[in-house]
Structures are given as C-alpha cells and as structure tokens.
Amino acid sequence: MSTPASLSPPIPAPTPLTAFFWESLTNRQLSILRCQNCGNYVHYPRPICNVCLSEDLAPEVVSGKGTLYAHTWATQAFHPYYVDKLPYCLAVVELPEQPGLRITSNIIDTPREQVHGGMALEVVFHEISPGLTLPLFVAEGFAPVTA
C-alpha cells in the first residue's frame, strides 16, 4: 500500500555510507560517524576524516544531549505534509560530543515561549511513518520516560 506524499515528510534515500544513521534510529539510538584514528566526528557522513585523512570511520552512539544553535518557527508550508502542522519548530542542534557538531531536527512538545537559543535539549525518537524514525528534541528533563 502506498503512502500519499501529504501523509509523510520527505523521506531519506540512504546510501551505503548513510544507512547506519537511519538504521540506528529504528533502534532508538542516535549515531554519528566517527574517525577511528583521531576521534573526530564527521557529519554529514563522508568516506574520509577531514582532520587526519583516515578512511577508517565507524558509527558511534552519541549521548542524545544537545543545545539549540538556531531555530525558526515555520509558518508557511512548502511541502504538503506540513500544511496541517504549522507552525513547527525547525532546529539546528549542537551535540556536546564535539564543538560545531550539529544536526538538523525539530523541537517538539515544548511551549513556544520556552524555546530559545542555547537551551538544553535531549533527543526523543518518533516513528513518523513505517520504517522511518526521526531524532527530535525536547527541553532537557522533559523527555517522557520510556521502557
């Protein structure tokens, strides 16, 4: 059975280099590619470490903590999935594992007046559609307890 475009956000088309990220999420883990020679995290995934030029990289699970680097409340839909989801908070989240290591995400379940640059965040995992789990963020301490 197919899912109309309006019922799903754009979905990732992983490559062998990026598949780990999405597979890890289905296990409710956030993983980032890391150089096994010098410890540098490399995101987006690349086949080489841009610090030491090692090609020995492997995914490693990160803490799931973060701080809010930048955000916006989207008030116009540019894709049919978002028409009934406005406004939503698009966010760039800096991970504590390495300065400048950031991922794009959404802030959810957090009152708008509490969302501000630099706020402490933690990851939650949401299965958006069958087979697609996204790492989203809430204010730290607000993550629902799950088994």
């Binding site: 197919s2 899912t3 109309p4 475009a5 019922l7 799903s8 956000p9 754009p10 979905i11 990732p12 088309a13 992983p14 490559t15 990026t18 990220f21 995101h43 987006y44 989207a74 540019f78 894709h79 999935y81 978002y82 989801k85 939503y88 698009l90 966010a91 991922i103 794009t104 995400s105 959404n106 958006i128 559609s129 697609l132 996204l134 989203l136």
Partner: peptide, 18 residues
Amino acid sequence: QPMQVGGDAQFTAPFGSV
C-alpha cells in the same frame, strides 16, 4: 509516493527544512 531525498538533504528535509 512520499518525496525521497538523497545526498546531504536526507539529513535536513525529513525535518521540514524544505
């Protein structure tokens, strides 16, 4: 079908950065 995105946009578009 849902829109499929490859490349680095696979890390941004699913979050509504479109």
